[in-house]
């Protein structure tokens, strides 16, 4: 595989993603971990762009980085005092590392098996081009009764329920 500009960009984003992720799980300071989460999420957004999904990349930046990460930072600040922990890992971290490694190895075995398999090897080129109006198509698909309108509505109900529930759980108890 020659070293095209695309490969370089991919490598950069992949490294950003993985390095950020490693930072998240290893960082001693929780606040730093949250910031590294932002970095990692940004890397994923870059991968989305490479995969010709600009809308998802935008959502990733706006919603994930802008929403979830900020939410988490709020969480970090609301529980201040726990930011700088003496001990980052729990007592089973060694076993956890083994399991994570085994998970990765298994996934790799599966990928290799499938890539070399007979039936449908993993393509190195996309089956076709993404339509120019793919974002419009996505929008239409989400509100199309024949496709995703029901899951879409259910998801919105879920979201509303989750947020109301979150407010309810997290509020101060006035009675006590």
């Amino acid at each position: 595989m020659e070293l095209t500009i695309e490969v370089v960009v991919f490598a950069v984003f992949a490294i950003i993603t993985l390095a950020g992720a490693l930072g998240v799980v290893l960082a001693r300071n929780l606040f730093r971990a949250a910031l590294l989460l932002l970095v990692s999420l940004f890397g994923v957004a870059g991968l989305f762009v490479l995969l010709a999904a600009p809308f998802l990349a935008a959502v990733q930046v706006l919603l994930y980085m802008g929403g979830i990460a900020i939410l988490i930072i709020f969480g970090v600040m609301l529980t201040r005092g726990m930011v700088q922990a003496r001990q980052v890992m729990n007592s089973q971290w060694d076993l956890a590392a083994v399991i994570a490694l085994v998970t990765f190895v298994i996934l790799m075995i599966v990928i290799v098996q499938v890539a070399q398999g007979e039936g449908a090897p993993l393509p190195s080129l996309p089956r076709g081009d993404v339509a120019a109006d793919s974002i419009a198509q996505l929008g239409a698909a989400l509100v199309d009764p024949a496709q995703y309108v029901l899951p879409f509505e259910v998801a919105s109900v879920l979201l509303a329920g989750a947020l109301i529930g979150a407010v309810y759980i997290a509020r101060e108890d006035e009675a006590e």
């Binding site: 089973q92 076993l95 956890a96 399991i99």
Partner: peptide, 10 residues
């Protein structure tokens, strides 16, 4: 809970 999770993962 993490220990449970570990068991699940195993």
């Amino acid at each position: 809970i993490q220990q449970y999770l570990l068991m699940v993962a195993l």
